[in-house]
């Protein structure tokens, strides 16, 4: 086998800034700051930093927090798109900061970063997640079965039945979808796409027996019928879940009661 020459693999490398053929560029992060301990007003603040464009927006935020301004506040943990901590509005679109590379968002212009919309901002990029998790809990997001004597072994499920709800099992509850939804912005009572995605995950699981109850919950005035199919949620989802399609399938199940 030929040894591939890996110039592409330089991606992860981070030589010192200023080194010969340094990959570093100067970018401006324009961040929406808010700290009620200091001021009731939110303001925009610009930070200039040297960064390799193949690095993540999260790396840029860390550079600011660690080297320029320790008061900058955001949530993060895994740094590779699986924990759902760092959904934020980057250049006007909801994304995970740890899954967005600088080079993919036009670093020539200032990069705007602000908290996701529709949830109360508590400090800088941190929002109150409670209403989001409440909507999730409201759809009974757990397997419900009626069997009185549980099988000793696993319940059987065909590979096809397992595949039926695969897409919606991928959700990491990051709220990128819900906080990109204009209906949710205008009315926080709407369950929002993430809760519906998680209801879908159980409604279409062949092992579950409470689909009817969940559909009733979603039939509510704040349920699926509020969705206006703007596709913002699908565009926002960092896990590539077809959120709008899942919502449409729930609507169809409500009409036909077949799932």
């Amino acid at each position: 086998m030929a040894t591939p020459v890996l110039d592409k693999a330089d991606a992860a490398g981070s030589p010192e800034p200023g080194a010969a053929d340094s990959p570093y560029i100067t970018v401006t992060f324009r961040i929406r700051r808010f700290n009620p301990e200091v001021s009731a007003e939110a303001t925009w603040e610009d930070f200039q930093l040297e960064i390799d464009p193949k690095e993540r927006v999260l790396d840029g935020l860390h550079k600011i927090k660690w080297d320029l301004d320790g008061t900058l506040t955001f949530r993060r943990s895994c740094a590779h798109g699986i924990c759902g901590s760092d959904a934020m509005r980057i250049n006007g679109k909801n994304r995970l900061a740890c899954k967005t590379l600088i080079k993919d968002i036009n670093p020539e212009k200032p990069i705007t970063i602000e908290a996701i919309k529709g949830l109360t901002v508590l400090k800088d990029l941190v929002v109150d997640m409670e209403p989001f998790f409440q909507a999730y809990r409201d759809v009974m997001p757990f397997l419900i079965t009626k069997d009185t004597n549980e099988p000793t072994r696993e319940r059987l499920q065909s590979a096809e039945d397992r595949e039926r709800f695969d897409d919606t099992t991928k959700c990491i509850l990051c709220a990128a979808c819900t906080s990109s939804c204009p209906v949710f912005w205008n009315d926080g009572q709407y369950f929002g796409p993430a809760a519906i995605v998680n209801a879908h995950r159980f409604i279409f699981d062949s092992r579950d027996e409470a689909g009817e109850q969940r559909l009733e919950i979603l039939n509510d005035k704040d349920g699926v019928w509020r969705c206006r199919t703007t596709f913002n949620c699908t565009d926002a989802c960092p896990r590539g879940i077809e959120v709008t399609k899942a919502i449409a399938e729930v609507k169809r199940a409500l009409i036909t009661r077949r799932y």
Partner: peptide, 17 residues
């Protein structure tokens, strides 16, 4: 088996286990 009963969506064999 506990996790499966709690709802964990494991990958399945052709006979459903």
């Amino acid at each position: 088996l506990d996790l499966e009963k709690m709802g964990l969506p494991f990958n399945r064999t052709p006979n459903g286990t």
